[in-house]
């Protein structure tokens, strides 16, 4: 069954979109990630214009992170104070990101920047995660006790110190703010929530306890992706609510199944699998950039700013 998307202005198979939503939702439930980094390239691959894919995916992530944060909030796993600081940075970053996106679109380089960001960030994160989970698996085999490391670095000399009770931290607010800015920019350009950057940054850079990391990052993602959705809707008119609704429907169901499967697997194995998948996506996109295209020329609508 075909459905015509009013903003993307193409006709797509409704079951294909539901299936993609379900598949990515399953993986995000399984691994506890947003899945934006998988969905946006998939949408572009099936012919959704990249600008529409990025903006619409931001809209969908609003829904999945609301659903996720409610579950964590009930267990008391959200550090709202930390979330607010991250969010302040996120609003600044994502506003700048949407502006950057519009500018790149006028230059005709937005597709390249989207793909390059994916290649670079997914490549780095994937390799780091793979190494980490490998090390964790080795440790589990050798059954050595894990020593908690608390190190003092230059980061602890920064001003504007704040106490984050839930995270049991006393650090400079500039640190989470900066992380928020970086993730906000990525959210706008890549059409992702940014959890895959934020979660490791919170654990390894800030030293937050793992239990509150996911809930807090989801809390921040809701507002940053909402900001991206609004700005994309106003600046570029590229948010397709019909597409977002279809993805959402499949995603919600897939995620629930994923969570149930996920509890049966080991954490390190899961992270190893996720790492392989992230590296896979990165490699496919690299391939796309390196291989000579069959037609060197491509066409697109002219931007009005080029007209005068």
């Amino acid at each position: 069954m075909q459905i015509y998307l009013p903003i993307a202005e193409i006709s797509v198979n409704i079951f294909l979109i539901l299936g993609m939503g379900g598949g990515v939702g399953f993986l995000s439930g399984l691994f506890g990630v947003g899945g934006g980094f998988l969905m946006t390239p998939l949408l572009i691959f099936i012919g959704i214009p990249p600008a529409v894919a990025v903006a619409t995916e931001a809209n969908q992530i609003v829904a999945s992170s609301v659903s996720g944060v409610l579950a964590h909030w009930r267990r008391g796993n959200v550090d709202f104070r930390m979330g607010a600081v991250l969010l302040a940075g996120g609003v600044v970053g994502s506003t700048f990101g949407v502006w950057l996106f519009t500018w790149l679109r006028e230059l005709g380089q937005v597709d390249l920047v989207i793909k390059l960001s994916y290649v670079v960030f997914l490549g780095i994160i994937g390799v780091l995660m793979l190494l980490e989970s490998g090390r964790a698996m080795m440790k589990r085999k050798n059954a050595k006790p894990v020593n908690e490391k608390s190190h003092h670095t230059w980061m602890h000399g920064l001003p504007l110190k704040m106490r984050f009770r839930k995270s049991r931290l006393y650090i400079s607010a500039l640190l989470p703010f900066t992380i928020g800015v970086v993730v906000g920019i990525l959210a706008a350009i890549m059409g992702v929530g940014g959890g895959f950057i934020m979660v490791p940054a919170m654990i390894y850079l800030l030293g937050m306890p793992t239990s509150v990391v996911v809930g807090t990052s989801l809390f921040q993602i809701i507002f940053v992706t909402a900001n991206v959705t609004m700005l994309q809707a106003v600046t570029n008119q590229t948010v397709d609510v019909v597409l977002a609704m279809l993805l959402l429907l499949g995603g919600v169901i897939g995620a629930q199944i994923g969570v149930r499967v996920g509890v049966k697997l080991h954490g390190e194995q899961l992270r190893g699998l996720l790492a392989l998948m992230v590296i896979g996506v990165s490699l496919i996109l690299t391939f796309d950039l390196v291989i000579e295209p069959s037609d060197l020329y491509s066409i697109g609508p002219a931007n009005h700013s080029e007209g005068h």
């Binding site: 809209n59 969908q60 609003v62 829904a63 999945s64 992170s65 609301v66 659903s67 996720g68 409610l70 579950a71 809701i222 909402a226 959705t229 609004m230 700005l231 994309q232 809707a233 106003v234 948010v239 609510v241 977002a244 609704m245 959402l248 919600v252």
Partner: peptide, 18 residues
Amino acid sequence: IYGALAILIAALAGWLAN
């Protein structure tokens, strides 16, 4: 208004799913 509605629908859908 469109942007606000898109966000509202998404938030509502997330809450319903939960």
